[in-house]
Design a protein around this nucleic acid. Sequence first.
RNA 1: GGCCCAUUAGUCAAGCGGCUAAGACGUCGCCCUCUCACGGCGAAGGCAUGGGUUCGAUUCCCGUAUGGGUCACCA
Length: 551
Amino acid sequence: MNYNELAELVLPNIKTTPEDIEKRYPPRELPEGAKVTRFAPSPTGFLHVGGLFGCLTDERLAHQSNGVVILRIEDTDSKREVTGATELFIENLNHYGIHFDEGAVVGGDKGNYGPYRQSERAEIYQTFAKQLIREGKAYPCFLTAEEIDEIRKQQEEKKLLPGIYGEWSKWRNASIEEVKEALAAKKEFVVRLKSTGDPSNHFKFTDMIKGTIDVTENNIDEVLLKSDGIPTYHFAHAVDDHLMGTTHVIRGDEWLPSLPKHIEIFNALGFKLPKYCHTAALLKMDGPDSKRKLSKRKDPEADVAFFTKEGYSSEALLEYLMTLLNSNFEDWRMANPDASITEFPVSLKKMSVSGALFDIVKLYDVCKNVLCRKSAEEIYNETSDWAKIYSPDFYRVFTENPDYTKNFLSIGRGTAKPRKDFGLYSEVQEYSGFMFDEYYNENGEYDERFDNSLIKDVLEQYLKVYDYNDEQQDWFEKIKDVSEKFGFARETKQYKASPESFKGHVGDISSFIRVAITGKQNSPDMYQVMKTLGYDKVVERLNKQIKRLSV
RNA sequence: GGCCCAUUAGUCAAGCGGCUAAGACGUCGCCCUCUCACGGCGAAGGCAUGGGUUCGAUUCCCGUAUGGGUCACCA
């Protein structure tokens, strides 16, 4: 068989040689130990949390080693491509502060190892495919979908491995005449790898995360080039990662089963194998005692945009993802509460080999910890940004008087043990709403143990003594005085010591005032709330409640 | 079904032949307290299973079970 002739027949338009192409991709000049990684999504929808997790890994590993991280778009499947998905990816990645050194950007590319969209690299793949045919390592296959189905059926009946391989491949040893004939008949074809593997052979392979794993040799004549001349993932992976100088391929472990194919393709091409890092998938509960991969289709929380919409801060999500990435991150965070996550040394060795449940409850705890450390100014700005899009009515009220809002937000903030009232920007409305007349609940529920007339009397009495200019201590003394006057204990302890001697305690009296002024059972420090609210508003609300309780 | 991977409390997990088996989230209780949110203290809860190897196995080996992944001209 004259493989040169075959190659010309199959890919007549390809005039470039592998050498021509290699020249365009000179070795990178990087410091010792620098890692080159890439995030390579296919633009088939939204950015998945698992994708963000992976690309966080890519980014951290590259940058902490003074390496390079690339954004490569794997748009080789035109059937599944979603228009605008690439831009959406870039936008979301930006929102999470993931910065790429090279790769696709809106409207083009950045970097010298492009193009970074696989759809623009057809000539490159075809050149290498042609070379493989020339060397007798690949061949055109004219099998139709129906024929392949038929083969699979027979294989199933005989309980054999499904796929195109060995004697099942009618075209791997076809004569040049047969190929010419098929070509003349304008039959569609793909280019397949002529596998030399034997699945009864196993060998050891070291994955940077999984450790030593058992691999079965590939014997499938995998499709390299689809009938439209565009490569499959497997072939594009080998060609691109070789040319772009990727040192570490970080990808989900759903790729593990096809690793043998990739090894064989790299070998056929004469390329050095990169290091592989197969990360475990993020899981979620599916029923009472079953877990499954977080699904793009079924789970709304798989979409990172879901978190933005729900009011999660991007930092918190990243922070949580870091705890899943490296189990020692939490300890590090406790020791370095204010450090940027970029200072944390990510280690491949600390990565989990098995999948972690995406724990939204734990995420929430992280959220609270992240937000409680922010200044009132930051909370104000970030909540405004969120509300502007997702809760415009609240946004208007919230931002009407910025200083007023920030004053309220600063209550219990900036101390060593800050309040943790909310974890999401969307919760700020519930937390702060009562500060605005538009959201203040006039029909707050008082403690049912006490009569409305008693509460009314207490409020009237308090109104008499209330002085806006009181210091906190005096303010509280007055509440205690009112308590005593109505037969309530001045101190909680007194009450606890002999509950029968009192109607209640100072806490109950405070709660009357609290409900009157905030419309809620709970609130931050009442003294500061009243200070922030202002004299007029306090008096107005007290009067309103006295009136309401009179009827 | 074949192949591959995994298995420490409800969850995330330290552990890498000898420990009363860390820690975090969650749950529960107590304390603090003007309520709540914090904070402090404490509690319940775990090495899937059967064989080996070994003076000794959570740790090493084999089997079993369970869970997961994957078997496309999708990535």
